[in-house]
Amino acid sequence: MNYKMSLPIAAVLLAGLCASPALAEDKGVIVAFVPSSTNPYIGQWAKGAQAKAGELGYTLKVIENNFNQAEQDSQVQQQLASGEKVAGYVWWPFENAAGVGSLRALSQSGAPVIVSNQYPIKGTEAYWTAYAGANDFLSGKTAAEILLDACAKSGVKCDKGAIIRFPAGVSAGDDRATGFQDAVKGKLDVLTVVPTAGFLEDEGYKVAAQIIPANKGQLTWLYTENDSLAGAAAQAARENGLVPGKDILIVGGTCHGDSKHVKNGEIAGTAIQSGYWEGWMAVQALGKFNTQGKVQDGETYLADNPDAPPADSDPVFKYNFLPNPAVGNSQAAYDAAKMWGKSADELCNF
């Protein structure tokens, strides 16, 4: 069992356990099940969730698993067996499909369940109250729009290209690739879709450094599903004599990793997908439901207001999506970009 909790979370948890229910401030405990925060994005998510929970008067308990669904399942069993009264659960399964049993068990406890980050599987609607998190189709679509826009602007002839995607089985990878391909249908020619073995620079470089020379003179664009992979692909392109932004257009579509490739124009642009705000909005959705007592059918994209986060009084829908505001590929554009009152730099460089 591997409860890796950062010290402040543990401290808050202790405080939560000790606090008596008589305190008017305390609205109860929210329990979030997430993979390990050794992944920086998940670490950001936990920070955002913590911030919103504190603001709303909840105590947040984050239970991390070490990227292991079996471990997460047993954590759910233990949490339920403890009989603790909770204000609600937040569910981020490690393996979406494999975790359905645990999701069902959580829902049967009677407490509201907010699903985050992993887009729920069709047919499980009865097991969760609302989804609040990223929309990976949207991420792929936004990336496609950035790319098409860049093609039009730069005058580079865009036809054949390749997708470097997340490892097989990662649903975010499937969804982003689908969203991207739907958006470029009839406009761009996808030569090949190559999965990596990971999400970081070293893997992105490994794959890009092999497919770029193999398709020399053919590739005009690359979509890599995140900016870590995109930055590494830009490096590989340069090493193969291609100037990113001129000979080849590269887009990651989610700011993740080093922003320097966006700022210096090597990547055609990016979009803010903030782990911090995703955690924040998941807790907000739970808070909304506990106050308003109802969920509206359908979906909503929260407004990507640069200066202020969405109000707690807004209704909560069955699907609540995190916006992916696009960011231009220059220092100025990057500096100006903001989402919900935080700068791109704060949200992307964690």
Partner: peptide, 16 residues
């Protein structure tokens, strides 16, 4: 080499 190439390090590098 890896840190030098990408100018950054993370805790989940080389996983797997």
């Amino acid at each position: 080499f890896t840190v030098s190439q990408f100018s950054q390090a993370k805790a989940d590098l080389f996983a797997g």
